[in-house]
């Protein structure tokens, strides 16, 4: 375990809301199996949605995909899903923390909360990607990612099923780059 921890160089965190599930279902099968980095998914969903989303997503990839657990150490070549109804935070020892505080942007998990926490811990090793969605969660988080030297990527609003969320980030000038859905897997594979 210690070894994995030391080895973590880059981390990808992806936030999405309405219309982003389709993006993930398209991107996941195209990811290379020996992906050297961890990916963390923060998706808006119903508080009661239990294991179904994990099952659905993991059916699309051979990479280990699981719900992030409290105090679990982040490992490379693993995809983690933020559990429903908790905010997902990151500790300095590269483990996950859960938090049941107030919703942010009407959301728990909130993308802003996870992006901000990830930015503090991973700094310029972080790549944050904001997908389709119908509220402005994620924009403040991306700003923090940029301020801490990380890379801020936004799904090209023109390719988003619901463009409000990526549009909000682009308008706030917190996107280093916009990427079309069709380019996304390729981009991740080359990191």
């Amino acid at each position: 375990m210690e070894k994995d921890r030391v080895n973590i160089q880059r981390v990808i965190i992806i936030g999405g809301s309405a219309g982003s599930l389709e993006v993930l279902l398209e991107v996941l099968p195209q990811l290379k199996h020996d992906l050297k980095i961890p990916i963390i998914l923060v998706m808006h969903r119903k508080a009661t949605a239990e294991s179904t989303l994990v099952n659905l997503l993991s059916s699309r990839t051979s990479i280990c995909l699981k719900e992030a657990e409290e105090k679990e150490h982040i490992r490379n070549n693993c995809i983690y899903l933020a559990p429903a109804d908790y905010h997902l935070l990151f500790e300095d020892d590269l483990s996950f923390s859960l938090d049941y505080s107030e919703k942010i942007n009407y959301s728990r998990p909130s993308i802003d909360v996870s992006f901000e926490s990830a930015a503090e811990v991973f700094k310029d090793n972080l790549v944050a990607i904001l997908l389709s969605g119908a509220n402005s969660d994620g924009t403040n988080g991306l700003r923090e990612v940029q301020q801490r030297g990380g890379l801020s990527i936004v799904q090209d609003p023109a390719t988003a099923e619901v463009s409000f969320m990526p549009r909000s980030a682009v308008d706030a000038k917190v996107a280093d780059k916009t990427i079309a859905v069709t380019e996304l897997a390729n981009f991740i594979n080359q990191l």
Binding site: L89, F90, E91, D92, S97, D99, V113, V121
Partner: peptide, 9 residues
């Protein structure tokens, strides 16, 4: 206490 949440609070 776990630091990430504490710092945020």
């Amino acid at each position: 206490y776990a630091k990430a949440s504490l710092r945020r609070r």
